[in-house]
Design a binder for these strands. Structure first.
Length: 481
DNA sequence: CACCTCAATTCCGCTCAGGTTTG
DNA sequence: CCAAACCTGAGCGGAATTGAGGT
């Protein structure tokens, strides 16, 4: 990634990093020279050190905590053109840490730092964090909280999906409402209704205000600027902006005539740097959503649309023909559905450095198998005609039956190979995991697997299964409605 | 052909940056 | 209104798995 012209890292380039780099190289070298036993021993020792800190007792239930280890001080990178990239993120000392434990619980000792002590010890039982500390650079507070697999996170998580389900019950009302309001004579109402349309249709984030001196310039729906949209008559809009994590959102969308007319008006006479929806903010949208459901907020639309899309895609499956599908094909079917959700939510990942080379390698392998099939076919027809087969440097089957078998085998291999090539290319820049863990109601997947006789392990890795224990026993008849 | 070894590749858990919502 | 609190999401690095090549 290119560093910006004004990047603080430019000044850091003047520093002598030689000895630091040498030290890191040495560490890396040492590690690579270690035997498996030694590595195992060290990772076991580290795990033992962390063990005591990894769980907490909450109402006498042992719950797993989230990130309990901390990275050492380092140069902050940030995502995209972050104003603070290259600055030092300082070490966290006990003096900035607040410990939140039960009144009767023993206060954990500060280990390894004689003379240091916690900033404070509190007993707040209405929050989820067990420790809070200052971020060493960004100036906000970070928390030590519970793991995604814990009950404390799991229960609200389930409620999140049920909230999205309830939206299905009133989404028609919402849609009718904003379609009507788009024609309101009040500009703020028009903007509110048009922004809602994008949040619903494109699963955009709501997009709050950001501090340009301290944070990267990224936007969501409410903070879209004229420069991010291109109008293409009669009714297409091209979105091109950097969203969360400075991930590019690039999409050409067909919209209704009213929406096209509205956006045209909102943009008219404005500079590229001006807001499209200057009369709207996330608070107003969330207030509006309360008219339909008391706990409806903008982000529910993302959960709702992701889960609904998954269900729609999976419903196309003809369960009466499930026996004609191999496990691999069922997985592919599921992954394709998963992928359409990931595309909707714009869940991207960086293309791996080795992708191109790996694809080329697979292509030559494919060519090799195809060549072999051709050779075998020629050989087969020679056998059929009773001709003496052409001499070959490769061993060929002696009779027609053996040859046919070989051809069938090679074709199978080719099919599998082409499949994995397509899969690799399809997933090149799309990340399926994020929607699996955060957006798609796991019960939809559970029901699909039960109906199609597919092992859940094939589509839900262990971490996902342990995150959703509450979803696993739902019946095959479950529907997201 | 079964089995092993070692490198390449993929998977997966961890961490924390970057969001949204709320009190 | 804004800071606290919680939710989301990509990247990293080590572990696990796969695959090529040798015995």
């Amino acid at each position: 990634m290119a560093l910006g012209e004004n990047s603080p890292i430019k000044d850091l380039k003047k520093c002598d990093f030689g000895n630091i780099v040498a030290h890191l190289d040495e560490q890396r070298q040492k590690k690579s020279e270690m035997s498996r036993e030694e590595k195992e021993k060290i990772s076991k020792e580290n795990a033992k050190k962390k063990e005591w800190f990894s769980h907490a007792l909450v109402n006498n239930i042992r719950e797993k905590l989230g990130a309990v280890a901390m990275e050492p001080p380092q140069l902050f990178r940030g995502r995209g053109e972050h104003p603070k990239q290259g600055l030092l993120k300082r070490r966290t000392f006990p003096e900035t840490c607040v410990i939140n434990i039960g009144e009767m619980a023993p206060v954990p000792k500060v280990i390894g730092l004689p003379g240091h002590a916690w900033k404070d010890v509190v007993h707040e039982n209405t929050v989820q964090w067990i420790a809070a500390f200052d971020d060493g650079l960004l100036g906000d507070t970070k928390y030590v909280s519970f793991a995604a697999t814990s009950g404390l996170k799991g229960q609200p998580d389930m409620l999140k999906y049920d909230r999205a389900r309830r939206l299905l019950g009133c989404v028609d009302k919402v849609r009718n409402s904003y379609e009507k309001l788009q024609k309101s004579s009040n500009l703020a109402e028009q903007q509110k209704a048009t922004a809602t349309y994008f949040i619903d249709k494109l699963a955009l984030r709501v997009g709050g205000e950001k501090n340009t001196d301290e944070e990267a310039d990224t936007v969501g729906c409410c903070s879209l600027r004229v420069e991010h949209l291109t109008l293409e008559p009669p009714n297409s809009i091209i979105f091109d902006f950097l969203g969360k994590d400075s991930i590019r959102y690039f999409n050409k969308v067909q919209v209704t005539d009213t929406v096209f007319q509205n956006v045209t008006n909102f943009m008219k006479g404005k500079k590229p740097s001006e807001d499209v929806f200057e009369k709207v903010d996330p608070g107003m949208l969330n207030d509006y959503f309360k008219e339909f459901m008391d706990d409806l907020t903008a982000k529910v639309f993302r959960t709702f649309n992701a889960s609904y899309t998954l269900q729609q895609e999976l419903q196309k499956f003809d369960y009466s023909k499930k026996d004609q599908f191999t496990h691999d094909q069922l997985v592919k079917y599921y992954n394709d559905a998963n992928r359409s959700v990931a595309v909707l939510c714009n869940h991207q990942r960086a293309e791996s450095k080795t992708h191109g080379a790996a694809m080329e390698k697979m292509q030559t392998q494919k060519d090799g198998i195809e060549k072999q099939i051709k050779l075998l076919k020629r050989h087969l027809s020679a056998l059929d005609k009773g001709e003496t087969p052409k001499p070959s440097d490769k061993p060929l089957p002696k009779d027609a039956i053996g040859c046919k078998k070989k051809i069938a085998e090679a074709k199978m291999r080719l099919e599998k190979h082409v499949y994995s090539m397509n899969e690799k290319e399809d997933n090149k820049t799309v990340s399926l995991g994020t929607s699996k863990v955060n957006y798609m109601d796991p019960r939809i997947t559970v029901a699909f697997c039960k109906k199609a006789d597919l092992d859940i392990e094939k589509v839900f890795p262990r971490t996902v299964r342990t995150k959703f224990p509450w979803a696993m026993h739902f019946p095959s008849t479950y529907v997201f409605d």
